[in-house]
Design a protein around this nucleic acid. Sequence first.
DNA 1: GTATGTGCAAACCTTTTGCATTTAC
DNA 2: GTAAATGCAAAAGGTTTGCACATAC
Lengths: 140, 140
Amino acid sequence: METQDLRNAGLKVTLPRIKILEILEKQQDDRHLSAEKVYKILLAEGEEIGLATVYRVLTQFEAAGLVNRHHFEGGNSIFELNSGGHHDHVVCMKCGKVDEFTDEVIEKRQSEIALRLGYTLTDHSLYLYGYCAACKPPKA
Amino acid sequence: METQDLRNAGLKVTLPRIKILEILEKQQDDRHLSAEKVYKILLAEGEEIGLATVYRVLTQFEAAGLVNRHHFEGGNSIFELNSGGHHDHVVCMKCGKVDEFTDEVIEKRQSEIALRLGYTLTDHSLYLYGYCAACKPPKA
DNA sequence: GTATGTGCAAACCTTTTGCATTTAC
DNA sequence: GTAAATGCAAAAGGTTTGCACATAC
């Protein structure tokens, strides 16, 4: 369970860390949460954990590879539990829904482009923005 | 010249707007500037234009389609003159160099993926991060 | 002359940090 | 018992906004 995950990550097992990890694991509909959202869930569950701690814990989780941080359009950071494989995201501009996808052709192309331009790639981010099936386009 | 561009964009021709547009057009080595950078160039040229105005003007330019705004990793907004065609970016993590590229295969794939997931695409952002030819990888 | 734009300073929002207190081991 | 983690409040950094004054047309 969480306790072991934390130990494996080399982190002391503390209540805030357990709770936050639990919350991240609990999400099934949308695994992508802002720090604020995590904080609100904690409050709703009656936990006395500060927002600063949420940020600290999420940042540590990120450093430990337990979590990935994203910067979608609009500014604030979004965190998701690291599910192992790399993937990219499609974000609905209206309802905020996030879908994931992977595409080997795109990945391969990216490497080729980096090589051609003389770059050694360390990372990349690909975000598609649009309207999901449930949200009609604004004027169409 | 700038005056006409501004009129075409439906903006009153004011000194700050002309100056900022000039600066954006003047960049040839790196067309990607932060608001702060634009502000510093203005100061260096002896112009008495406030940072708030720089932000306002750049935001108006963006709304008018004269300029594109990007959010590279690390936070602050980067602006570039709209050169017409869409392109994506490779950013050097060390020296900050930015290269542009377009790839029709990637573009096509993105559309297909969006369609498959039921999204109507409005926009997308693809940023590759790495080390440019001049900057050796940190530990390799 | 009037509506718009600008400068300045203050507000904002997300994220980080300092420090005294609490907790894990 | 000691080093690390937490809570709170304050700071930080980028961006926006309110308002009096200046400018474009």
